[in-house]
Simulated scan of single mutants.
Amino acid sequence: MTNEPPAAVVPPRPLSPSDERTWAVLTHISALVGIVVGAGFIGWLGPLIILLVLKDRSAFVAEHAKTTLNFQITMFIAAVIAFFLWFVLIGFLITAAIYVVVIVFSIIAAVAAGRGERYEYPLSIRFIR
């Protein structure tokens, strides 16, 4: 057995400000893509992946990813409630309203992220801090 010293752990390289803004925008856009591709059920997946991969490299990206995740989880809960209200014939209106809210606020958040600004979604429960 050789007594080699353990390899030094190299801290992750921080993102440049331009890359931070790009990844923050992609966090919000990936949620929109997840909504469209997953019929409203996987909007949380893109922001979760970005959070897990880049949280140590950029606090700005991590904050946007957490905010997006909280909003997507909140809207998913609202969509589940709307699904059950389909049986009393008002669920389709609530479902349509949820999609409009998600699209509008996600675009607003992506624009804010592109400017390098912090954005907090309205109507969002903070599950992840």
Rank of each mutant, 00 (worst) to 15 (best):
I128A: 07
G46D: 02
I107L: 11
V36R: 13
L89G: 03
A24T: 08
I94T: 08
L51G: 05
G43L: 04
K66F: 00
F87G: 03
V53H: 15
I107T: 06
T95W: 14
S16L: 07
R126W: 09
I29N: 01
I103S: 09
N70S: 02
S124V: 01
P122R: 07
N3H: 12
I49G: 01
F71Q: 06
L69Y: 03
V33I: 07
V25K: 01
F60P: 14
P14W: 15
I49F: 10
V10L: 10
A96H: 14
A7C: 15
H28V: 02
P122A: 04
L52M: 12
V104Y: 09
A62E: 08
A39Q: 13
A59G: 15
L52W: 15
A8T: 05
A112S: 05
P122M: 09
E20P: 12
F71I: 00
Y121I: 03
F76L: 13
E4G: 01
F127M: 01
T22N: 11
N70L: 09
V9I: 15
V10Q: 09
A97P: 02
R13M: 07
T95S: 14
G34V: 10
V80Y: 01
Y99H: 13
A8M: 15
L69N: 00
R118F: 11
I73Q: 11
A7H: 12
Y99I: 06
V104I: 14
I128K: 01
L32I: 07
Y99M: 12
A79D: 04
I125G: 02
R115K: 06
H64W: 00
G38D: 10
E117L: 09
I94V: 15
A8R: 13
M1L: 12
L15D: 06
R118I: 14
E20K: 14
E120V: 13
H64A: 00
P5G: 03
L123K: 09
F105W: 06
A79C: 09
A31G: 07
F92L: 12
F84E: 08
W86I: 14
L85C: 07
L51K: 05
A65W: 04
L69P: 01
P14C: 06
P11N: 07
E63S: 14
R13K: 10
S124I: 01
G91W: 05
K66C: 00
I108A: 09
P47C: 08
A96G: 11
Y121D: 00
F60V: 11
V10T: 15
K66T: 04
I81E: 09
S106N: 03
L45W: 03
F60H: 15
P5T: 07
D56E: 11
I103P: 04
V100A: 09
V33W: 04
I98G: 15
R126D: 14
